[in-house]
Design a protein around this nucleic acid. Structure first.
Ligand SMILES: Nc1nc2c(ncn2[C@H]2C[C@H](O)[C@@H](COP(=O)(O)OP(=O)(O)OP(=O)(O)O)O2)c(=O)[nH]1
Ligand SMILES: [Mg+2]
Ligand SMILES: [Zn+2]
Length: 549
DNA sequence: GCCGTTTTCGGCCCGACTGTTTTCAGTCG
């Protein structure tokens, strides 16, 4: 759920246009969509703001230029109304009537929609009828039996909200990809092992390899006669914190993360990953959706459950344009299906034995899950212009690696050996530089110790050469970009290195400057002749901290 | 609120599960 602390309209930080950035306007429209929903607005109007938010986020052109040249409504999904808002925000830094909407909806209502099965319609009712505008007030009302008697509510919903508030407090947010994947693979394997399961596969954002994973989505293929039994076996799993829903083809669970914390098989787990897993509260939960279908429809359901939602919508629209219809059961003729829906409609589906045949029937090659975000991949695939993605096997080495000389977990030699084991041809060492300290504790390598690392690397390189090992270490540094855009270390040291990765670490002054000032300082660093690579350019730490403007 | 080459009105992806429900809205995926 979006953080409520930043729930306000952005203010201009500049005297001249552009007064707002693409990101600021995009984020605002996302919030407006949520507020409109709580305000009971037409749902397609809500979607219009979501679409506009996406359109801005994916716009490559300079927004001010587009506005000044009166081309804003040429962007698909942006018309007169929203286009007017964008122009006003960019040119004047103001937001039309949106401030009224923000004033009208208490932020507590947004938090309330975080409770499972409590959505905008009912939150609005609770607010209008009982003046409930916070989780605390909702809890009090539930405990005092004030909800059940309300028109549109009942004893079950009141009960659910109370449980939901507890679950919300335990909810630790989305999982970073590595953690989510580890959990997901354990669940996938547990389900695969149930007798008569033909196939179980992790789908959703985990299969698309997104940076963070909201929940675990699993497609399960099994013959109809076994499905009930399989569902019962899953419901008997230990560690189910809550059953959000259980039907004949879909179950929604909240799982104790502990249930999935066991590493898979005997393969040794990444040290950092196992640390991350144990760092998470033992109290943590993770949601799981399991979709159960007949083995023949597996490819369609896998494609559907892999998403993204936006990609699915485009795929379905594309099918309609071709006189077909697509759902999670098949791809079939619109006219033949008529009024039928769901599995009935898909009775005479085109036979597709895997995902690539679905895409083929829609005039495209198979699209890798990593690209399925409606970010241009449908157009690229239709025109035969899909990029060839870089695979793990394509990697020959990496330049940004730390060792125990700064804050790494492994020594230089351990790092090198592991790289050789991976079949890499080189490894660039780039430990933190001198000025990096955390609360006074020295992290980076002091200037006078850089020579030691240099000697050790030369020694190892000589050894690889003598032993005819096709591997080389490069001695670099992850050099701090200081607040004035200068690079850490003396010019002499930097000149002696094979590569200098410039990174901003002490965010302090960067946070309080605007985008263009920060960019100027970054450019200054980049223009230094010793500079090679810009490290983590946004300063963001996933689920840790925001980046700088 | 946006969109359109059968369009300026009437669609906008489509389905599972629940219980607020007795024929369907809300929520979620
Ligand atoms: N056609 C269609 N498919 C949807 C819709 N919502 C979700 N899906 C499909 C695509 C999603 O990737 C998949 C799983 O839903 P999730 O809500 O878990 O989304 P996803 O896993 O992509 O992201 P997450 O990290 O879990 O937030 O279900 C929808 O509104 N329409
Ligand atoms: Mg998901
Ligand atoms: Zn760094």
């Amino acid at each position: 759920m979006a953080s409520v602390s930043a729930w306000r309209l952005p203010q201009s930080r500049s005297d001249t246009p552009p007064h707002m950035t693409k990101t600021q306007i995009s984020t605002t429209f996302e919030q407006v969509a949520i507020l409109l929903e709580l305000d009971g607005a037409n749902r397609f109007r809500v979607i219009a703001y979501q679409n506009a938010s996406r359109a801005l986020a994916t716009l490559e052109e300079d927004l001010l230029t587009v506005v000044q040249e009166n081309r804003i409504t040429e962007i698909k999904g942006i018309g007169k109304g929203i286009g007017g808002l964008i122009s006003e925000a960019v040119l004047h830094g103001s937001w039309g009537n949106l401030d009224e909407l923000y004033a009208k909806i208490p932020p507590g209502l947004i938090q309330m929609t975080g409770i499972p099965s409590l959505g905008p319609k009912r939150v609005r009712l609770l607010y209008e009828e009982l003046k409930i505008d916070s989780l605390e007030k909702l809890k009090y009302a539930c405990e005092n039996n004030q909800i059940a008697s309300l028109q549109g509510f009942g004893p079950k919903s009141q009960e659910k909200y109370l449980e939901g508030i507890d679950l919300l407090n335990r909810y630790q947010g989305r999982n970073r990809l590595d953690i989510g994947l580890a959990y997901g693979r354990v669940l996938e394997e547990k389900i695969s092992k149930i007798p008569n399961v033909v196939k179980a596969q992790l789908a959703g954002s985990a299969r698309r390899m997104r940076e963070t994973i909201g929940d675990l989505d699993i497609v399960l293929g099994a013959k109809p006669e076994y499905q009930d039994g399989i569902i019962r076996e899953i419901m008997d799993f230990p560690g189910i914190a809550e059953v959000k829903g259980q039907g004949t083809s879909k179950i929604s669970l909240i799982l104790e993360a502990e249930m999935l914390a066991e590493p898979i098989g005997s393969s040794e787990m990444d040290i950092a990953l196992s640390e991350s897993l144990s760092e998470r509260s033992s109290n943590a939960t993770i949601d799981a959706q399991i979709r159960i279908v007949n083995p023949e429809t597996f490819p369609f359901t896998l494609a559907y459950f892999t998403g993204s939602k936006e990609h699915n919508i485009r795929m379905r629209q594309l099918a309609i344009d071709k006189g077909l219809r697509l759902n999670e059961f098949g791809l079939f003729s619109e006219s033949e299906a008529g009024d039928k829906t769901g599995m009935e409609a898909a009775k005479n589906t085109l036979i597709c034995s895997d995902e690539s045949e679905i895409y083929k029937n829609l005039g495209m090659p198979w699209i890798p899950p990593e690209l399925r975000e409606d970010m241009g991949e449908i157009e690229a695939a239709s025109e035969g212009n899909l990029p060839k993605l870089i695979e793990v096997g394509d990697l020959k080495g990496a330049f940004h690696n730390h060792t125990t000389s700064s804050d790494g977990a492994a020594t230089l030699e351990e790092m090198a050996n592991q790289a050789i084991n991976l079949g890499w041809e080189y490894l660039g060492i780039a430990d933190h530089s001198e000025s990096l300290n955390i609360g006074g504790r020295q992290i980076g390598i002091p200037s006078n110790e850089m020579i030691n690392q240099s000697i050790e690397i030369k020694k190892l390189n000589k050894y690889y050469q003598n032993e005819n090992i096709n591997f080389k270490l490069f001695h670099g540094s992850e050099c701090d970009i200081l607040s004035d855009g200068k690079l850490d270390y003396s010019l002499e040291i930097r000149n002696s290195l094979s590569h200098v990765i410039g990174s901003v670490h002490a965010l302090g002054s960067w946070k309080n400057r605007d985008e263009s000032t920060n960019t100027e300082f970054l450019i200054k660093a980049i223009e230094d002749p010793t500079f090679t690579i810009l490290g983590h350019p946004t300063g963001r730490i996933l689920q840790g901290r925001e980046g700088f403007p």
